[in-house]
Structure formats: structure tokens, C-alpha cells
């Protein structure tokens, strides 16, 4: 790394790679071990919700939490603000 790099404000491409991987790996590890139908369930739920409310696909979160002896399927939908409100 030369002197110039000290003044460069742009993060290195390696640190961008690391950050992107850190996030995606954490996300994919979280989804692992859950039932295979979760992604499909998420998609279908999204379609149904979409019939009534125009939600962003990112606004639907599905989580499967394991607690002692039982599993909780948690669904959270962030509804958009009313237009004009």
C-alpha cells in the first residue's frame, strides 16, 4: 500500500467483499436447518398479501425460532404508509 492509499477514502475491494460475505453468510446460516418449504411459503404468502396490499417483497419476514420443545413460525409484514397520509 503506497502513501496515496492513506488519503484514499474509498474502502478497499477486499473489505467490501468481506462485508458482503459476512452479511450473506450470516443470512444463509440462519435459514439453514429450517424446513425446505420456508422459501416457498414466503413466496406464496407474499402473493396473497399482494392481492390486498401493495407491499415490498423485502417487507415480509419469516422466521422460525426454536424454543424448548416447540417451534414458533413468526411472520412480520411491514405495511406501507397510506398514500397521501
Amino acid at each position: 500500500m503506497g502513501l496515496l492509499a492513506l488519503f484514499r477514502s474509498k474502502p478497499s475491494s477486499a473489505s467490501i467483499a468481506k462485508e458482503r460475505l459476512r452479511i450473506i453468510v450470516a443470512q444463509e446460516r440462519g435459514g439453514r436447518g429450517g424446513p425446505d418449504y420456508l422459501p416457498l411459503l414466503r413466496r406464496e404468502l407474499l402473493q396473497v398479501i399482494h392481492k390486498y396490499v401493495n407491499v415490498d417483497p423485502e417487507a415480509v419476514q419469516i422466521n422460525l425460532e426454536r424454543e424448548a420443545g416447540h417451534e414458533v413460525l413468526e411472520l412480520s409484514v411491514a405495511l406501507p404508509e397510506k398514500p397521501g397520509a
Binding site: M1, A5, S12, S13, A14, S15, A17, K18, L21, R22, V25
Partner: peptide, 17 residues
Amino acid sequence: RVANGEMMSVGDVKEIL
């Protein structure tokens, strides 16, 4: 390339995985 910040280091890969 690792020194130049163009490639992830052993430490980076180790930390992620």
C-alpha cells in the same frame, strides 16, 4: 494483492467461515 487490499486475507476468510 492482499497487501494492496485487492484480495481478502487468510484472516478475513477464517473469520467469515
